[in-house]
Design a protein around this nucleic acid. Structure first.
Length: 593
DNA sequence: TGCGCTACGTA
DNA sequence: CGTACGTAGCGCAG
């Protein structure tokens, strides 16, 4: 099939879509994108196949009617596209499915089955790569009905094969419209399920409506696609300078790399007094024991206290630090992930499987502090960094409505009033709060924890209830309504496994709710940046990094604060809980705080 | 080649 | 202290 995109006419949108009679502003409009070919649309019982450049079509519809876009996933719909226009509202079936049902599957077949009230289909997520080269799979894909006799979505539709199987363009566009119609039906079923979620236990007043969580999660899924497309501005020369200072010059070839590696190793092995593979933990352990150090493993935190006892230990720790930069964040990493435009790009997920935090690949979420000077604003721009202060204890106050802890959130430093309540110093108070939230098992905070129980009984009871659910294998929902699946995970297990599930659940109700607040905040900031040259370029659990034209810096600062106030008001209405953000305008990420 | 283990970076 | 994630090198099984 030849590509005739170069001579295709300007897209003609159906009048019903454009005039808004069928799709009123904010009304659901499902879209399935055929990259480079067109889109299928569905709304209000109608469907349309529209040939043309998908990015232009989406932009035209967005300008005309501002719908709530319904898609199987933002990644499938607009991944790889760069719509020249801000898409304001969406319902992401995969994201809402994860919210409603937890677990790891969010492929269209699993989403459809759950929405239709059918059992989870076999097969799991299909990887497109695995389908290529077999030849056979193309045969059963073409012409297959979307739903089988049980009402399950067929694999060929679920993985998108029927939209890219060499069938005539008109046929594929018709299928795209049919697939969009199915998406619309699934979204309606999800909306009913979201509306039917029970109120959050213990907080009948002022908890976020699950529909708000669904909207924020959908927006976060779209933001994840945008983050991947936009990238993090990285000053490559600074980055290479930092790497070079730690591990030496860039190797000229493979042999040079081997030589440089040996040169880095030699002085360290010499300290140990014999041949030794520093990259083999078993050998390092043996060598350390030979020096008289009886350690169970060779982890850095354990060796740090021994660094003064023998120069070999200090040399090993220095070597490890440099080696991390040489391997994980070295020249190879820069070459793989930093494009010619100076942007570091990696894949983003809007919700991990455990508690729903955002994740990112390509080192975006674990960039060593050492490399942060390399994250720099481009000419005419600044970075605006904002991070939520002490967000987890404040979230605990919101979700538990513990009166004492709520009162403590009015302080800029929450740990100050907590310390007063516990009659302890600030450091002890902080350890006690963290120990309560994370289920610490060893004893450093013992007495302070007991006093936490007296000072904040409602918060502690909330955490204990979550832990009990985890131990007993009962599912739990976060404050915003996300299902934390604990039942199947606890099906088999020893005592240690039950304890692990308990600690996980205790932590997940706080970490998960914090993730929901963060994403709602990020979605509000994203909306506020629409139409400006500013972009969110990094999300880091409790921190947002914006890249904005210098002239817009002040507005961005106001936006970050205003969006937090607005989000917190909706998210913890009437609770009295105060959330705070520290915001700084900088040229380099390292300059903030 | 795939997987578990060890180790370590971030929050 | 604890949870979560992604990445890399090694040894071992297939």
């Amino acid at each position: 099939m030849t590509d005739d995109a170069g001579v295709s006419p300007a897209p003609v949108l159906p009048a019903e879509v454009l005039d808004g009679a069928t799709a009123a502003p904010g009304a659901p409009l499902a879209v399935v994108v055929l990259p480079g070919r067109g889109v299928g649309l569905a709304a209000g019982g109608r469907r349309w196949s529209v040939p043309g450049p998908p990015a232009d079509l989406l932009a035209a519809v967005e300008r005309a009617v501002r719908p709530r876009w319904v898609w199987w996933s933002a990644h499938a719909a607009v991944g790889g596209l760069v719509p020249g226009v801000h898409l304001a509202r969406c319902h992401d079936l995969a994201a809402v499915h994860r919210l409603l049902h937890g677990g790891v599957r969010d492929d269209a077949a699993a989403v459809w089955a759950a929405a239709a009230g059918l059992p989870e289909p076999a097969g799991g997520r299909r990887r497109a790569e695995a389908l290529h080269g077999t030849g056979l799979l193309d045969l059963d894909g073409t012409g297959e009905a979307p739903l089988d006799a049980q009402g399950q979505l067929s694999p060929a539709w679920s993985d998108g094969r029927v939209l890219d199987d060499g069938a005539p363009p008109g046929e594929q566009l018709a299928r795209a419209a049919e697939f969009a119609a199915l998406a619309l039906r699934a979204a309606q079923a999800q909306a009913r399920a979201v509306a039917a979620l029970p109120e959050h236990r213990g907080t009948p007043v002022g908890a976020p409506l699950p529909v708000q969580t669904a909207q924020a999660e959908s927006a976060a899924a779209l933001l994840a696609v945008e983050l991947e497309a936009v990238g993090l501005p990285l000053d490559r020369r600074t980055a290479e300078g930092i790497v070079g200072a730690a591990v030496g010059p860039r190797p000229r070839d493979a042999a040079d790399e081997v030589r440089l590696r040996a040169a880095r190793d030699a002085p360290v092995t010499a300290e140990f007094g014999g041949p030794l593979d520093l990259r083999n933990p078993a050998q390092v352990l043996h060598a350390l024991r030979g020096l008289g150090f009886d350690v169970p493993d060779t982890r850095a935190w354990r060796l740090e206290r021994l660094a003064g006892a023998h120069p070999a230990v200090a040399a090993l720790l220095r070597w490890r630090k440099a080696e991390r930069l040489a391997t994980t964040y070295g020249y190879g990493w820069l070459d793989r992930h930093v494009a010619g435009d100076g942007r570091l790009r990696g894949a983003w997920s809007s919700a991990d499987a455990a508690a729903g935090r955002m994740t990112a690949q390509a080192g975006l979420h674990n960039l060593p502090a050492e490399l942060r000077p390399a994250v720099a604003a481009e000419d005419g721009h600044v970075l605006v960094r904002a991070d939520l202060g002490q967000v987890e204890p404040r979230v605990l106050a919101a979700v538990s409505r513990d009166a004492g802890l709520v009162a403590a959130t009015t302080d800029d430093d929450l740990y100050a009033p907590v310390a007063a309540a516990l009659a302890a110093d600030r450091a002890t108070a902080k350890i006690a709060v963290l120990a309560a939230m994370y289920g610490q098992t060893s004893g450093a905070a013992g007495e302070a924890l007991r006093r936490m129980e007296e000072a904040y009984p409602t918060a502690l009871a909330h955490l204990r209830a979550a832990e009990a659910a985890g131990r007993e294998g009962r599912d739990v929902r976060t404050y915003g309504g996300r299902l934390l699946r604990l039942a199947d995970a606890a099906a088999s297990g020893a005592d240690a496994a039950f304890a692990a599930r308990g600690r996980f659940a205790r932590n997940a109700v706080v970490q998960g709710a914090a993730a929901e607040l963060f994403k709602a905040w990020a979605a509000t900031v994203r909306a506020g940046l629409a139409g400006t040259g500013g972009r969110i370029v990094l999300c880091l659990h409790d921190e947002l990094l914006l890249h904005v034209p210098t002239a817009d810096a002040g507005a961005a600062v106001d936006l970050l604060h205003g969006a937090l106030a607005q989000t917190a008001h909706r998210w913890a209405a009437g609770s009295g809980v105060r959330f705070v953000a520290e915001v700084a305008v900088v040229q380099r990420w390292s300059q903030a705080k």
